[in-house]
């Protein structure tokens, strides 16, 4: 599956099946919990994939171990992973790659990006072509989340000069950051 990372098509070095090599490997929660093939002892890069009914609270102790956490969207309208993503970024302080997998559609990129996803497995490369456009469609937001976009409620309180709405957010390609949610006023 094509992968969009930091706004561009990217190579995906991650494997999902253990072929015995030292390649970076994404495992399921079940495999991780059962320590299948001694994966917990491996010192090659490890990622984990969580189904939409698997809360990241289940891996809270091990978060430091993962370089990728992939959250599944089994259907476009199963929105649990939006909460999981914010919890991972804002509560658990996860700084690695947060990957959206499954039914990942163009019209959801913005929501996902705002919740802290920075990598997206998409059905075809066409999605990468419209990425920039999809993220530019809306630039005014009313909620503080763990990305760098400042909500209207914060921008309104800024001293002059007020900038027009279209240019108010930070650029759409900015990577999510985990540090700034705390000091945003409402």
């Amino acid at each position: 599956m094509p992968l969009i990372k930091d706004g561009k098509l990217a190579d995906d070095p991650w494997q999902v099946a253990d072929d015995g090599t030292a390649a970076p490997l994404i495992v399921s929660l079940e495999a991780w919990q059962a320590n299948e093939g001694g994966i917990r002892q491996r010192n090659t890069p490890i990622g984990i994939r969580l189904a939409s009914d698997q809360s990241p609270a289940l891996i809270a102790e091990d978060i430091e171990r993962f370089e990728v956490i992939a959250l599944e969207f089994p259907k476009f309208n199963d929105g649990r992973a939006y909460s999981y993503a914010r919890l991972l970024r804002e509560r658990h302080g996860y700084k690695g790659e947060l990957r959206a997998v499954g039914n990942v559609l163009r019209d959801q990129f913005l929501f996902m990006h705002r919740c802290g996803f920075d990598a997206f497995e998409v059905a075809d490369t066409g999605a990468a072509a419209v990425w920039e456009e999809a993220l530019r469609e809306i630039s005014v937001w009313y909620q503080p989340t763990a990305d760098r976009r400042k909500p209207a409620t914060t921008l309104r309180r800024k001293p002059h000069p007020r900038r027009p709405a279209a240019g108010t957010s930070s650029g759409p390609g900015d990577p999510p950051s985990v540090a700034c949610a705390g000091h945003w006023a409402y």
């Binding site: 476009f76 199963d78 929105g79 939006y82 929501f111 009313y142 909620q143 989340t145 209207a152």
Partner: peptide, 14 residues
């Protein structure tokens, strides 16, 4: 109204 408008986390509720 403002807080809930296009809320990134709560636009695909059950």
């Amino acid at each position: 109204r403002q807080w809930s408008t296009l809320h990134p986390e709560f636009s695909f509720l059950p």
